[in-house]
Structures are given as C-alpha cells and as structure tokens.
Simulated assay, not measured.
Amino acid sequence: MAGDPLISLRRLCLALPETSERLSHGEPAWFVRGKKTFVMYADRHHDDKVAFWCPAPAGAQEELVGAEPERFFRPPYVGHRGWLGVRLDVDVDWAEIERIVIDAYCLVAPKSLIEQVPGRT
C-alpha cells in the first residue's frame, strides 16, 4: 500500500468484521460494532507525527518502543493503558501495520467476530 496513509489504514480497519468509522476527538477512529475503539488516527494531532494509536497486547508497547523508538511511541492519554503509537510517516511496513491492526481489533472484538478474521480462532 502506498500513497495517503489514512486511505491505507482505513482499508485495513474496515476490512475487519462489523467495523465502522467516525470522528473521535476530531480525527478518524475505527470501532467494533460501533462501540469499542480499536484504532485512532492522529495526523499531527498532539505533535508532529502522522500516526495511529491502538490497544496492544501486554508488553508489546514496551518491547516495540524500546526496539524502534523512531517508529513506535507511547501515545498521550492512552499510553498508560498499554496502547501503542505507530508512526505512518517513517519507514512504513504495511504488512506489519496490518498485523498490529488485527491484534488491536482482536483485543476488543467479541470472540464471535474474532473467529471471522482469517488466521484467527
């Protein structure tokens, strides 16, 4: 995926079962069944980064930020809950982004929807 990172991110998020998009805090965000947020876009919203924020599995935030602080960060407001910030303006690996988005989705989606995600049970 190349071009506008918002378009690519939107495509990944809306491909998952029963997802929707709406503005949250002035930026696009994606929800499972219209209720639980699994990705929030951040276009220089709090800093100079084009990125997204999402819940991450336990320990993933620390591991990724520690290993690649130029690509990953602890986002404001939700970072203390383990959410991960992922930059979309530097060295973007869309296959990795897809895995991160799917992991975030699976952290908030009900089991019946997770079972519909290819490769997940």
Rank of each mutant, 00 (worst) to 15 (best):
A29C: 08
R87G: 11
L107F: 05
D89Q: 07
L23I: 05
H80P: 15
F72M: 03
P28V: 06
V90H: 12
A109K: 00
E98K: 14
S20N: 05
E70K: 14
F31H: 01
L23V: 03
A15V: 04
L64F: 12
G79E: 11
D89A: 06
R120Y: 09
R10T: 05
H25C: 08
I97Y: 06
R87I: 12
R11P: 01
R33C: 08
E68W: 11
A95V: 14
A67N: 07
R99P: 02
A67E: 12
V32H: 05
R99E: 06
S8R: 05
D103N: 14
A109E: 01
E18Y: 05
P5H: 02
A29G: 10
F52Q: 02
W83P: 04
R71V: 07
M1Q: 13
D48T: 12
V50T: 08
K111T: 03
V86I: 15
E18C: 10
H45F: 08
S112R: 11
F73L: 06
L113P: 04
T19Y: 01
G79R: 13
E98S: 14
Y77P: 10
E68T: 11
R87Y: 11
A60Y: 09
L9H: 07
H80N: 15
K49R: 12
C106T: 02
G85A: 15
F52W: 03
A56D: 02
L88N: 14
A15M: 06
Q116P: 00
F52D: 02
W94D: 09
R120K: 09
G85M: 13
M40I: 13
R33Y: 05
G34N: 04
H45S: 03
H80K: 15
D103T: 05
L14D: 00
D91C: 15
I100L: 10
G59A: 10
R71A: 13
E63V: 09
D91Q: 15
P75F: 09
I100D: 00
W83V: 11
R87E: 10
A29P: 04
E62R: 01
V108K: 01
E115N: 08
D43G: 06
G82M: 14
M40N: 09
D89M: 08
V90W: 09
W94M: 11
I114L: 02
P55W: 03
I100G: 01
D93I: 07
A67T: 11
E115A: 12
L14T: 00
E70C: 05
R11D: 14
G66S: 07
E70H: 13
E98T: 15
E70F: 10
V92C: 13
G85R: 14
P75A: 06
L107Q: 03
D91F: 12
L113R: 08
A60E: 14
M40G: 07
I97E: 10
K111H: 08
S8F: 07
A95D: 14
V90R: 14
R99G: 03
R120M: 05
R11I: 00
L64P: 04
